[in-house]
Amino acid sequence: MDYFLMFISAIFVNNILLAQYLGNCPYLGCSKEKGVSIGMGFAVVFVAVMATAFTFIIQKYILVPYDLGYLQTIVFILVIAGLVQFVEMFLKRMVPPLYKSLGIFLPLITTNCAVLGIAILVQRKEYDFATAVFYSFAAGMGFMLALVLMAGIRERLAIARVPKAFEGTAIGLVMAGLMSLAFFAFKGMIA
């Protein structure tokens, strides 16, 4: 039951994108088409779960015992960069169809702050391993939901008449604000 609550909370109440402001660059950059946004969303879920698992183990068995906590940032980002590279090579060789659909998004994920953000967040919240991995999955799903919804809205927005100055990113941000407001309504759901 706790896991279920956490899942709902990470997707709707504390959405990683709309309530915690992580991963805005792909949110505005990769949300022009629905297909692209789904690909990006899956890539983020996949890498976020892997990265959280790996960084959790490194933090627990290497950084903490040897008192190297201050190296957290540099180690985490290198692990994520390495992991992304590895996943890319693995998929290319073993699962070509998946590589074809995710391939172009993988390099972008290294600098997606959602992935590093989730890895650091679970450390700060002091979750145990299973909870941390589950949280990363739920947060990734929340990211995907926001991204796909936004892509749907932007497809309609492309044919709408928008004031000249607001075309492109500006109206995208205002839209994001309205979506964030809608998600804000879930705040009361979990006390």
Binding site: Y21, G172, V174, G177
Partner: peptide, 18 residues
């Protein structure tokens, strides 16, 4: 709150374009 941040930045971007 979060929604205000998005809307505010969007409006500033629009103003800069204008």
């Amino acid at each position: 709150e979060a929604p205000g941040a998005f809307v505010c930045l969007g409006v500033i971007l629009g103003a800069m374009n204008f």
